[in-house]
Amino acid sequence: MKERFPQARIVALADQFDLSVVRLGHAAGVNGFCLTASAPEVLIKSLELVMLGETVLPSAIFRSLTSGAASDQDQSLHVNSVAEAKLPALAACRLSMREREILGCLTKGEPNKVIARKLEITEATIKVHVKAILRKIGATNRTQAAMWASQRLPRTEGSTLNV
């Protein structure tokens, strides 16, 4: 597919991923790997990231790669209650109420300027809070933080986040 359509963005969707398959897929030009058990919001955000040119991996694969488990070529990664329990919980991250409020705004895709106006604080203060949030939850960018929050922040009516 990539040979014929070099600009095409490719996402693999499966119940589980074997690290060797992920490596082969990446080498073949796959831009994202999504798990079928992902929440709809996570899947949508993942696809949006891929369309923006980012590479997407399930957090379990990323943790395995960064923790040295990548040397085990046959390790399969399943999404189940055990794997989900290893993801950092909202309470474990010790986010302040203000950080939770800002994280809720990030899940809506609001830029710093809009968040600052909404909360009546400076844009520089928002930047400080966003950096602290990223550090506390282990995300590398705002989109990852929004995806993380969409799975962990309490929900109320519809898809509105209760921060």
Rank of each mutant, 00 (worst) to 15 (best):
Met1Leu: 15
Leu49Phe: 04
Ala60Val: 11
Arg117Trp: 04
Glu99Gly: 09
Lys131His: 08
Lys86Cys: 14
Ala69Ile: 00
Ser159Val: 13
Asp74Tyr: 12
Asn141Ala: 04
Leu134Val: 03
Val79Ala: 02
Val79Leu: 13
Ile126Pro: 05
Lys127Gln: 12
Glu3Lys: 14
Ala92Ser: 12
Lys108Phe: 10
Ala139Met: 10
Ala83Gly: 07
Asp18Phe: 11
Arg152Gln: 11
Leu153Tyr: 02
Arg94Trp: 12
Ala149Ile: 07
His78Trp: 01
Ser76His: 13
Arg142Met: 02
Leu161Asp: 07
Gly29Met: 09
Cys93Val: 07
Ala85Ser: 14
Lys118Gly: 00
Thr125Cys: 05
Ser67Ala: 13
Thr122Arg: 03
Leu43Lys: 08
Pro58Arg: 00
Val56Phe: 03
Asp18Leu: 14
Lys108Gly: 06
Asn31Pro: 01
Glu3Tyr: 13
Arg142Gly: 00
Ile137His: 01
Gly109Lys: 00
Gly158Lys: 15
Ser71Trp: 10
Gln75Tyr: 13
Lys108Cys: 10
Arg23Val: 05
Ile61Ala: 09
Thr156Glu: 10
Ser81Gln: 14
Ile44Val: 11
Ile10Asp: 05
Ser71Pro: 03
Leu47Pro: 04
Gly158Ser: 15
Val128Lys: 13
Ala8Glu: 06
Ala89Pro: 01
Phe62Tyr: 11
His78Tyr: 13
Leu87Phe: 12
Glu157Asn: 10
Gly29Asn: 03
Asn141Thr: 12
Lys131Phe: 03
Leu106Tyr: 08
Cys105Asp: 14
Asp74Phe: 08
Ile137Gly: 07
Thr156Val: 11
Lys2Trp: 02
Val114Phe: 05
Pro154Tyr: 01
Ala60Gln: 09
Ala139Leu: 00
Ala14Cys: 10
Glu110Ser: 08
Arg4Ala: 11
Leu43Met: 09
Glu157His: 03
Leu87Ser: 02
Val128Ile: 14
Arg94Ala: 14
Gln7His: 10
Cys34Tyr: 05
Lys45Met: 11
Arg100Leu: 15
Ser38Ile: 04
Leu106His: 07
Leu119Pro: 13
Leu24Gly: 05
Ser59Gln: 10
Ile137Asp: 02
Asn162Arg: 14
Ser150Asp: 04
Ser20Gln: 01
Thr125His: 11
Lys108Met: 10
Glu120Leu: 12
Gly158Asn: 15
Glu120Ala: 11
Phe17Leu: 01
Ala91Gly: 12
Glu54Thr: 08
Ser76Leu: 15
Ala145Arg: 12
Ala132Phe: 06
Gly68Phe: 08
Val21Arg: 12
Leu24Glu: 12
Leu49Asp: 09
Lys118Arg: 15
Ser71Met: 13
Gly68Tyr: 07
Val56Met: 02
Gly138Trp: 06
Ile61Cys: 08
Lys45Trp: 08
Leu90Asp: 05
Ile44Tyr: 09
Phe5Gly: 04
Asp15Ser: 01
Thr125Asn: 05
Glu3Pro: 15
Lys108Glu: 15
Ser20Phe: 09
His26Glu: 06
Arg117Asn: 14
Phe5Arg: 06
Leu77Lys: 10
Arg117Met: 11
Ile102Cys: 07
Ala91Val: 13
Pro58Lys: 02
Ser46Arg: 02
